[in-house]
Amino acid sequence: MDVASFLEQCGIGITSGGFLGLIAVGYTLVYGTVGLIHFAHGDVVMLGGCLSLAILSFLVPLPVDPLTGCLIVVLAATCSGLFCGCMNVCIDQFVYRPLRNAPPLSPLVSTIGVSFVLMNVGLVWIGPTDRAFPEIFLESTRLIGGVPVAMADFLVLVIIVPPVFCLYILLRQTRFGRSLRSIAAITRATARSGEAGKLVIATFFISGFLGGVASVAAGVHATTINYQMGHQMGLYAITAAVLGGIGSVPGAIVGGLIVGLIRAISVALLGPRWAITSVFLVLIIFLAFRPQGIFGKSKTRGGQR
């Protein structure tokens, strides 16, 4: 593999790692506040993708110029983010909240149940086959400083970077972020108390919003969506969250990028059939040496189980 193609693979890895990271942040935030692996998150993202497909097919019947394209996609990302955020909050309030005091594995089953229901909704909504995202640009690649850059990948970065930046500001600079982080740092018991209820709602909304944005990025990147994509991306994103240290937001983003890179490079080196294996083998070997993930604290609360 020469340098140029290696760089190209890295570019692909970073773009796909970017939205995987955003989805992983969703897993990690929810885990941090209510101590739950939200298995349905991938399917929430999938439904966001369905909505953005509907919006984009309505607004972009023909390829448009890059600026308009970007604006439309940003609009779709915002809509689908809001949709996913609200849906996530509803799921939490109606399904998970009554189970806050249940044995730890019971809400896990509920998340799987929700995941099945959402997958079926997606199946009815867009049908069983792959659906193509509309062509957004006339030209698909453009030379920037002598390096060919795929416009789609560029667009993915345009979608992903602002939310990550906002999230950083939100968590670091605001009172809300500090209380969120303090909850994540103390125990699950805090989240059960009534006062933390609003924080939990906010967490679910943010995680859903990021997922919705990521779904548009994923659609633009992969160019098609289908009703099973949530399952596939969910597995990668959980892996990313655990690799980064579950509960840690920067860990999730770094984990996402690592998973994306491993995937792209293993596809180029070993062939497309070995992507999943390489990602999970790296995970297993890494956790055998560092059981708490990259950014995780060594005293994980998983030990309470």
């Binding site: 655990v242 059939r273 294996t277 297993i284 956790l287 055998a288 059981p291 993930g293 030990g303 309470q304």
Partner: peptide
Amino acid sequence: PTLRLRGEYLAIVTLGFGEVVRVLFLN
């Protein structure tokens, strides 16, 4: 090798093992 892991970490490792086995079956 995975007994040091607790809770969710062990769950994800077993999940990963399952997927690795499935892909090995296929390949």
